[in-house]
């Protein structure tokens, strides 16, 4: 197996073009597990750790451009304010050692439906910038996941960055695991509220072949909040509305039974997480208003 070590982004893209079968590796928290279990035997590994520009994040107006090599630990420590949903999800990734090495781009590259970063990326409408020697393109997160452990990358492309809007309102993330730390998600849910635009974003993890949004639930909730004037008044959301939101999130999922949990439990827990996270996000919004007044 070849081990390619480009020292610049241009070199990395050239290496990927020359070796389309090369698997990019940054923290190695996912790739190395697959190799150690002998599940994959790629023709080459493309080590991106020398490409220092990937390890930067930067503000770009209302957005954050998160380099592919930024670790979960840095997201938790440096980006909790502008990217609260992603930071909450990052906190649930593996152990401290794994968070010190693992990256959001690694989650995207593996495209496991259980990746913890996916739900907040979906809920916040994140964009994925991918590049090759042919050029650069931008994909919406929801278009990036194409199947179980499959994504929209062409063989010669690498993930360059994830671009996210700085939070325009409360964001929440919740994840079910059967122990209280270091666990792969049984089901996960993210919500992002944008009170200015009057929109709701959602993301579901581990409950379908790919991470996915609950579009119907988003539209329904945003519409009902508008219809009741709640975006303006920030009054209490009726229980019936919260419940219906949970039901619609549940209906957006299509989980399976596996060793980590049953499909029935996944559906049930999504409805509960959707209700609870909406409640917390709405409470945050109400608190913001109280603070402002």
């Amino acid at each position: 197996m070849d081990f390619l070590r480009p020292t610049s982004w241009a070199e990395a893209l050239e290496a990927k073009a020359a070796h389309p079968g090369a698997v990019p590796i940054a923290g190695g928290t996912d790739v190395m597990v697959e190799l150690n279990f002998d599940r994959h035997r790629p023709e080459a590994l493309l080590d991106l750790n020398q490409v220092t520009e990937l390890q930067q994040w930067a503000e770009d107006g209302t957005r954050i451009r998160l380099g592919a090599g930024v670790t979960y630990t840095r997201i938790i420590e440096e980006l909790g304010d502008p990217l609260p949903g992603l930071a909450m999800a990052s906190r649930t990734v593996g152990s401290p050692q794994i968070r010190n090495r693992g990256t959001v781009a690694g989650n995207l590259g593996a495209a496991s439906p259980a990746g913890d970063a996916h739900p907040p990326l979906l809920a916040t409408g994140a964009e994925i910038r991918v590049a090759s020697t042919r050029g650069t393109r931008t994909l919406r997160a929801e278009d990036f996941y194409t199947g179980v452990k499959r994504n929209a990358l062409e063989p010669d492309e690498l993930i360059e960055a994830v671009v996210l809007e700085k939070a325009k309102g409360p964001q929440q993330f919740a994840k079910i695991g059967t122990r209280n730390a270091m666990v792969i998600s049984v089901a996960a849910f993210a919500i992002a509220l944008d009170p200015e635009a009057g929109t709701v974003g959602t993301g579901i993890g581990s409950a379908a072949p790919t991470p996915r949004r609950a579009r119907d639930a988003e539209t329904f909730l945003a519409g009902e909040l508008a219809a009741h004037g709640l975006w303006e008044t920030r009054g209490a959301i009726p229980d019936s509305l919260t419940r219906e939101f949970g039901e619609r999130v549940r209906r957006a999922a299509s989980p399976i039974d596996d060793v980590r949990g049953t499909a029935a439990y996944r559906l049930h827990s999504l409805a509960v997480m959707a209700r609870r996270t909406l409640g917390w996000a709405w409470a945050d919004l109400q608190n913001d208003q109280r603070k402002a007044s």
Partner: peptide, 16 residues
């Protein structure tokens, strides 16, 4: 959160 069922995975703030 670490004292709650679910821990930092943020599944409850006391509900249930």
């Amino acid at each position: 959160l670490r004292s709650m069922p679910g821990g930092v995975a943020n599944t409850t703030h006391g509900e249930g």
